[in-house]
């Protein structure tokens, strides 16, 4: 009995976290995987964030705007109060510089083209360039 219920719970979880895979290229499915593994716990399955804790990724200027600023957030993390959609956030976000250039490009392309966002993709080349720039500044 318990087993049946736990399988049922598991199945419900899976089915509700599944993303609409409709028009996604293989590249954005790498992005989806990286998102689920490294971002989803805080920014949530729908990208909407957690009230008062973690900002939303839905049509924020950080996500859809300047790519350099966005890549820098992943490479260096973010640890200063920021205002997103009229709400202040304080929790730190650690750097994700341990991800490969491909993974960073894929996850950023994913968030820029999902959750209702319609922005342009980020390439691994752009990530690599910024990584070099940032490390030469140190």
């Amino acid at each position: 009995m318990l087993r049946v219920i736990s399988i049922a719970i598991f199945w419900m979880c899976l089915s509700s976290t599944a993303y609409s895979q409709g028009n996604q290229s293989p590249k954005s499915s790498i992005g989806a995987t990286v998102y689920q593994q490294y971002c989803m716990s805080c920014h949530q399955a729908d990208g909407g964030g957690v009230p008062r804790m973690t900002p939303s990724l839905i049509s924020t200027s950080y996500v859809t705007g300047d790519k350099k600023r966005l890549i820098t957030i992943l490479l260096q993390g973010l640890n200063e109060p920021i205002v997103v959609n009229d709400e202040e956030y304080y929790n730190p976000m650690a750097s994700f510089s341990f991800l490969t250039d491909q993974q960073i490009a894929a996850v950023l392309s994913y968030i820029r083209t999902n959750f209702g966002n319609k922005s342009t993709a980020v390439s691994a080349q752009e990530v690599l360039q910024l990584r070099k720039q940032l490390s030469s500044k140190k």
Binding site: I9, M12, C13, L14, S16, T17, Q36, M40, S41, C42, Q44, A45, V50, M53, T54
Partner: peptide, 8 residues
């Protein structure tokens, strides 16, 4: 909670 993904 906010922190039980992928669970409900």
């Amino acid at each position: 909670s906010w922190n039980r993904n992928p669970e409900f």
